[in-house]
Design a binder for these strands. Structure first.
Lengths: 348, 348
DNA sequence: ATCGTTAATGGGAACGTTCCCACTATCGTT
DNA sequence: AACGATAGTGGGAACGTTCCCATTAACGAT
């Protein structure tokens, strides 16, 4: 995008030269230093006579700070890079929107790059964001076996993990264990005794935590955990559909299914419907994340609502200020169970 | 985010000073000008002896161009601002991902801001992006009655409308009329004669176009257009559910429903299911956009696939190079009908 | 009246890059 | 052999801002 090409609109070719801090200074009869100080949003806002006047004049002249120049001099860009697998995954879109909102509260801007869930693509995404001069990274792509966070730490790049953690790096996550517990407990309280899990991938701390919560709830209820009731999957709809099929093929098939996320729950609903199994009459289903669509399904989905705003603001806070103490390195936000039509008492 | 705070990680406090073009120059024994030219990605890549050597040295030293400095000097940031209502709308996420991909092909970066669909929020979003120094804007928030595009044009801000157009500004859109025609024609060919439309909002050119295509197909088939079969709505799931209820309450109720987008189609499916109306046995449904989820619904949805990649690259091309001719100001990309289980012959 | 303290101001250097310009070397042409 | 054209090189200015530092003004305390 050549400047010459982009500026060569026929209409309004007048505004060739931007208004700089020097223009404001000379118009106000003060020095550029004074204007710079007055307009510096980081300093406490002074209410001098001159301050007000200069601000007014800058406003009237249509002055806007050149971020490139400011960044060059200040040494930071007030920009945070966010890496997510994909934005078409509504969960990730929700996380990003929450991060963007939290950033704007502190005068920063969140820019995003996607990895398409390819294992090594997070490195490329990080590289492109760092080239863009971001001050720090927020990653939602952490994998169990991956040492990318360590590489980043070794390079001195500030970063925080979100939604998923590696257990070591600064992280802001949901309480997946609690969520899994609440989901399972909800089904147990309804009277279910055989509960299947669509377990998600083992490389993600989120799905592992949710399954742990499931185990805990069962053990607490003195129900033995059947390993054939725990079906691994991805986070995708297809995998959820497959896993549900597998669960329904079991002898003593489950009367309820806890899916590790809403996508797999949607897949499960699809499979159950195709099998002629009614939800919730024959089988109850619980999802996770409360993405907007699930409350509008033919059978509205019982699910866990994740406090993305809180997770986002914690992530940003950790990025900026770091951990207060050793056990503050991983901040955990509690989810809420949202009971809807997809879960009910077992029919028997 | 103070630099001092972000850099004050205990680990690896060594890399205090970044490697600049001067370091590379002195290491290679050439001048900074030479290095600058050799590393300038816009110039044709020279294959001199020195070029190769300098590139190697830069690589080895871990040199990365400071974008702030480059932007300051070059006068552009190689950054494109994208404004969408929200990213949790999968359609918008798909558009953004396509734009981001197209940007990266030309060495640019797409940064996004959302409006939450509030009428005037696009101005705020644009302002925040322009403050961030974007070279141009891509808007998917155009409304019939809105004069924001004109304001931008008056200010000399380069911009292109995507997915929706105002009919005047540079735009890259799908062929909504054709899409509406194909959807309706598909239902007609199956034998349907009473076809309802969930028409979307009238302020969006996309939904208006799709309804026009619907009318055209009916007229072509010599079927009179019943105004009670055209139910306005928003783009949301709820509105689709309501509209479907309204259609099903009609005397001579439709045997098929064309929804202006997949969201409203999903809402319609939900309502129909709740009414005990079977899809496609009793009523056929066609959506629009082919968002990933709809192929995985219990009844996979017949819908129109929109070529987002093409729309994105056209938008970027228009932004960069402008229109070639007067009738090139609005570029139109054709959608494709994807027949699935939700549409079939009428039962009668 | 003098002094030290605080607050506000302006001049100039710096951030890292690109671009203009002048200069040299090389080459093919007359 | 002389010439102009072409390609590559380096020095310095410029982009717009922030920050350091020196200077001045204001003020209360001695």
């Amino acid at each position: 995008m050549e400047k010459s090409e982009m500026d060569s609109k026929p209409e309004e070719a007048s505004r060739q030269t931007r208004v700089t801090i020097l223009d404001v200074a000379s118009a106000a009869g003060v020095s550029k230093s004074t204007v710079s100080r007055i307009l510096d949003e980081r300093l406490p806002r002074s209410d001098n006579d001159t301050s007000r006047r200069v601000r007014k004049i800058a406003e009237d002249m249509g002055y806007v700070r050149d971020v490139s120049a400011a960044s060059l001099r200040r040494g930071n860009t007030m920009t945070v890079g966010v890496i997510v697998p994909r934005l078409t995954d509504t969960v990730m879109a929700m996380l990003y929107e929450a991060l963007a909102k939290a950033c704007s509260k502190s005068g920063r801007f969140a820019i995003v790059a996607t990895t398409d869930d390819k294992p090594k693509a997070d490195r490329l995404a990080a590289e492109s964001l760092l080239k863009r001069g971001v001050d720090g990274l927020i990653l939602s792509t952490a994998r169990e076996d991956d040492d990318f966070p360590d590489e980043l730490a070794a390079r001195g790049v500030p970063f925080v993990l979100a939604l998923r953690t590696d257990g070591r790096s600064l992280s802001s996550v949901g309480d997946d264990r609690l969520g899994g517990y609440l989901a399972t407990r909800h089904l147990l309280d309804l009277g279910h005794r055989r509960i299947g899990v669509i377990a998600g991938p083992s490389y993600a701390s989120s799905s592992r935590g949710r399954v742990e919560g499931y185990r805990q709830a069962l053990e607490e209820a003195a129900i033995s955990v059947r390993s054939d009731c725990i079906v691994p999957s991805t986070f995708g709809i297809d995998a959820g559909a497959d896993a549900a099929l597998q669960l329904m093929r079991l002898e003593d098939r489950p009367t309820a299914v806890f899916a590790v996320n809403d996508n797999t729950a949607i897949g499960a609903l699809s499979s159950l419907s195709r099998l002629g199994i009614s939800v919730p009459n024959d089988v109850s289903v619980v999802g996770y994340n409360d993405i907007p669509i699930v409350s509008h399904l033919p059978t509205p989905l019982t699910t866990l609502r994740v406090p993305f705003e809180q997770i986002a603001s914690n992530a940003l806070d950790l990025l900026t200020s770091g951990a207060i103490s050793a056990d503050d390195r991983i901040r955990i936000s509690a989810p809420t169970l949202i009971p809807r039509k997809s879960s009910a008492k077992p029919s028997s």
